[in-house]
Structure formats: C-alpha cells, structure tokens
C-alpha cells in the first residue's frame, strides 16, 4: 500500500544573508504508513518543526520531494485538486494551538471554521451533527459549545484545538509537541484520545515531542534528528533495545524514568554534539533500522 506520507531527501535551508544559510533540515528521508504513529525526537533546533512545516507546505522546500497519498505535493506543478486534498487531509496541532484559538469565537465556530473553509458540508444540520460528534470524541460536551476560549482551562482549550483539526476527518495529523505545556494527567487524557483516533478511525500521526517516554509509549516507529540530519530511524522496540548512533544512545539514556533505584544507579551515555559532522550515509543496518554512518 502507498504510505500516507513519503518524504524524500527533504532539504530546507534558510538563507539568512549572503554569508549565512541555516540547513534546518538536510537530506531527510522517511515515510509514514497508514494508521501509523510516527514519532520524531531530537534536541531543540534539530529541525523537527521545520519538517512539519515543510510537509504542510507553509514554505517552499529547498529540494527533495514530498508525496501525500502517492501524489507529489512539494513541486511547483501540483494540481489544484491535490493541493486542496492535502490542505484538507493534513492537519497540525501545535504546542500553543490552545493559545492561538481565536478569543472572540465560540467553541462551535472554532470547530466549524475549517469545515466551512473547505466546504465539506452543504447542509447546516450535518455540520452541527459533526460538531457534536467531535466534541464528544475529544471528551468535551454540548455545554462547551457556546463557550469562549477564555472560559476554558488550558487542557480543554487544547482539546478544542484537537477537535478543530479532526473535524474534517484528516488522514494525517501532525502533532508538534501538543502536550508539552500540559499536566501529566491531562497529557494522559489527550494521548489516550490520540490512541483512540488512531485505533478506531485509522488516523495516521506524526508525533513530535521531547518527552521520550510519551513518544515511546505512543509511536510505532521513531526518527531521531540532530542538527537537521536524520541520525537514526527504526521500530520503537528495536530503537530502544538496540540504539546505534551515539547521539541516540545519549538521548535515550538521559530520559528520566520514575523509578528511584533505577535512576540513581543509571549510567548515562555522553555525546558531544559539537563533534557531529552530519556527513555520512543513512544506512539500513537491519530491516527497517537506519543509522547515519558517519565518515
């Protein structure tokens, strides 16, 4: 089956001035299968959000190809239909989506807006029914319909943002640190919702986070980024059992675990990222497990 998303040799280089270009994403290749949760981890500035924004077409890419459901969406000659399909069927949730909700709109309007823009429903009743349905899916009730964002807690606002992005039934949701600012218990509620959407409705997810325990819990596969480069990619179990790149090792061994005995006796792998050249070949070392083998 064609993957839902196929990213090939993506480069996103920001030209700041004549002497400075930031290779925010440099030659990154991965694909996301239908119904899969694909995790992306890496330090701040490693290019995670830039991948997300490039996929969404927020800015033109420097080079490479991006295919959505088998159709190229990155080039100059993308047909209107394909562009519209991508705009409808790929949705993003940011860390501060909750803060970005229009304060003068009621919850129902916020959720309806993308459906109106995409003209998904001709019929008002159908749209009303859909709003009720998604409110329920994200664990909100009819009581919240008429509220303004300021009348809701942070966790509830994030649910509204999620409701808005799932309302038009996208095929792919890109969640860029969607729970970073929330409490553990609310994080758990939202992650449970993602699991449900994935299992029951076969949504595909790209889940970007710096909390490794959550990425591990949710993702089928994980891509590790460092300084714009993909350094390792593999199935979650494989990556955690058998990390190969020294940065991956350092990252996994730094993630704290709620077990005092384990934590206090734990040895961390150190890796000096200033030594990272990024030059090398992304090599398949075992089926589905890729590592940047540095020169």
């Amino acid at each position: 089956m064609t993957p839902i998303l196929d990213v090939r040799n993506l480069k996103q280089h920001f030209v700041i001035n004549r002497n400075l270009t930031i290779p925010a994403v440099d030659d990154v290749t991965f694909s996301v299968e239908r119904g899969e949760v694909f995790g992306i981890v890496g330090e701040t500035g490693s290019g995670k959000s830039t991948i997300a924004r490039s996929v969404l077409g927020i800015y033109p890419i420097t080079s490479g190809e991006i295919y959505f459901k088998g159709n190229e969406i990155s080039g100059k000659n993308v047909s209107k239909d394909i562009r519209k399909d991508a705009a409808c069927n790929m949705q993003i949730i940011f860390q501060d989506s909750a803060a970005a909700l229009n304060p003068s709109m009621r919850v129902e309007k916020i959720i309806a807006e993308p459906m109106e823009i995409q003209k998904v429903y001709q019929n008002k009743d159908e749209m009303e029914a859909r709003i009720s349905e998604v409110l329920k899916q994200v664990g909100l009730s009819e009581l919240h319909r008429k509220k303004y964002p300021s009348e809701l807690s942070g966790g509830m606002r994030q649910r509204v943002a999620i409701a808005r992005s799932i309302a038009i039934n996208p095929d792919l949701i890109i969640a860029d640190e969607p729970i970073a600012s929330l409490d553990v218990s609310i994080q758990a509620q939202i992650v449970t919702l993602f699991q449900h959407l994935q299992k029951e409705h076969n949504f595909s997810f790209i889940f970007i986070a710096h909390d490794l325990s959550m990425v591990k819990f949710l993702s089928d596969r994980i891509l590790v980024m460092l300084k714009g480069k993909a350094v390792e990619l593999g199935r979650t179990e494989e990556l955690f059992a058998n990390p190969i790149h020294p940065y991956t090792k350092a990252l996994l061994s730094s993630a704290p675990v709620p077990d005092p005995d384990y934590e206090k006796s734990r040895v961390r792998d150190e890796y000096d990222t200033s030594k990272f050249t990024g030059r090398g070949v992304f090599t398949e070392v075992s089926p589905g497990h890729y590592v940047l083998v540095e020169e």
Partner: peptide, 23 residues
C-alpha cells in the same frame, strides 16, 4: 497513585494510560 498511573513509563506500549479524571 493517579500521578503515577498517568506516567507512560509505567504502562506497556499500546496499553492505556490511566489519567486522573477532571482537574
């Protein structure tokens, strides 16, 4: 108990986090 049960490290992958309801 609730705080600990909502932590993903204490649940098997694919299992369900037990979040504390409400706020």
């Amino acid at each position: 108990w609730g705080l600990m049960s909502s932590h993903p490290s204490l649940v098997k992958r694919g299992g369900e986090l037990k979040s504390i309801p409400g706020m």
